[in-house]
Write a protein that binds this DNA or RNA. Sequence first.
DNA 1: TTACAGTGCATGCAAACGCATATAACTCGC
DNA 2: GCGAGTTATATGCGTTTGCATGCACTGTAA
Lengths: 130, 130
Amino acid sequence: MTAHATLMKQFQAEDIWGDVSIKEYDVLYTLSKCPVPVRLGDLNKNVLLSQPAMSRLVDRLADRGLIARETDPADRRGLLLSLTAEGRAVQRQIGARHARSVARAMTAELSPADLRCLEEICRKLADRKG
Amino acid sequence: MTAHATLMKQFQAEDIWGDVSIKEYDVLYTLSKCPVPVRLGDLNKNVLLSQPAMSRLVDRLADRGLIARETDPADRRGLLLSLTAEGRAVQRQIGARHARSVARAMTAELSPADLRCLEEICRKLADRKG
DNA sequence: TTACAGTGCATGCAAACGCATATAACTCGC
DNA sequence: GCGAGTTATATGCGTTTGCATGCACTGTAA
């Protein structure tokens, strides 16, 4: 937990976020990794926010024109979310800078073996029983 | 980040927290690890909260009698924080249950070698240059 | 000693959050 | 087909957060 907190505070303090908060970027990043539109509930699994908070975060991003919402034709309760062209551009721009920060922070202290090990561990933990 | 979010959501959903939030517990736990009273600013390094938010979280815990505040005699701007007897009792009770959850979640998916590797990685990241 | 830049914590305020719950849509048994 | 139960998202409301800033104290230097 301490490792996570110090890393996040360092990333948050970097002057690369423009008018996008780190949680908002988290959503943009997750969407950028999805080849097809995603459900709100699925997005919510990747971010430490309650469902209502995610709903309103998506509201704000949609109002700002960064993501598009459409009701799922197959299940009209559902929302399908995707990046707009502008959202994709913003994600790419911030993502490039953030990726450099992350790479710098991780390689500064961790060996290549550490990095492989950590990747494996995180995959195991994230894929854990639904 | 996904691994962290899923783990935290699972822990948060466990029915072991009583009327102490996970952030409040985080503070109680950190204090329980400190042999001597700690500064607010130092506590804040372990938790992903801004300084004002930490200040008010400590307010609430002090109002509830779980932690004690005293001004540092050596630097009278500073606050020294410590657990009260009740705070220590609460931390121990919740901590015992939470430790079991954590152990279960981690050992379910990770090998002993993974655990040693992760511990080493987290130490390196947490101790990273100020 | 007094002025002044720096540090540690507190507070005002708007924004964001979580909880409980409402709403809408789907599913299943009858 | 129709009501009961379930699932996906939205909304009301009180609480908590972050930002900007204020206040108290420290240290240094004229």
